[in-house]
């Protein structure tokens, strides 16, 4: 269901211009303006890729590619949407392409044991870390049972900084359509989540 803005993504795919303030800092880090972008958006982009793809290594690769593409094409960011919305659009487009390539090659999703193994967790209390890991796996399993459209909507709406209008912009539909589908997505997720318990 992801209908990316082809023109915008095409700019991202083909462009090679560095973004504003493009010189790499002397320490070899990001340019100052992109530092702020990465700091503010790395976690949501990585999490979206993680739960969309269901694999930590693949999610890291996807998030890496998204930030490299975004930075190299920062000039194509028109500023008529939030940077978060722009990055989400690139992320969903990239992840959808990856999944389609896997499907074309008959690559199957990772089994549950390897998903659990690959779940990133917070450091600290081991019991809490294990619980977080297990809950993360349940959420992943429930999301995996949903149609792609529902999975996307729930992952986007979970970002409380986004309005229905912004979710609609990302997924190319009206806010009313988002509301209607979200209702069904919630019911589908609740049913799928109950089965994972």
């Amino acid at each position: 269901m992801i209908a990316p803005e082809i023109q915008e993504i095409a700019c991202v795919e083909q462009g090679n211009a560095l973004g504003p303030g493009s010189s790499v800092s002397e320490q070899g880090g990001f340019p100052a303006d992109f530092e702020a972008v990465y700091a503010a958006h790395a976690q949501p982009v990585y999490y979206l890729a993680l739960r969309f793809l269901g694999d930590d290594a693949q999610a890291q690769d996807a998030a890496h590619d998204v930030f490299v593409k975004a930075f190299r094409n920062f000039e194509s960011f028109r500023g008529d949407s939030e940077i978060r919305t722009w990055l989400y659009r690139i992320t969903l487009h990239h992840c959808t392409n990856l999944r389609q390539r896997w499907a074309a090659r008959n690559i199957h999703a990772t089994d549950e044991a390897s998903i659990l193994e690959s779940q990133p967790t917070t450091a600290g209390d081991p019991l809490r870390a294990l619980e977080t890991k297990e809950l993360g796996q349940r959420i992943q399993n429930a999301l995996d049972r949903l149609p792609e459209e529902y999975r996307c909507l729930l992952l986007l709406v979970a970002d409380q900084d986004l309005s229905y209008e912004q979710v609609g912009q990302i997924t190319q539909q009206s806010p009313d359509a988002v509301r209607g589908k979200l209702h069904r997505a919630r019911k589908a997720f609740s049913a799928a989540f109950a089965k994972t318990g």
Binding site: T121, L154, A158, R186
Partner: peptide
């Protein structure tokens, strides 16, 4: 569900 997912996101570094 999105509240649960938002919590999961907050726990995922």
């Amino acid at each position: 569900p999105e509240a649960l997912i938002a919590w999961d996101r907050s726990q995922t570094p």
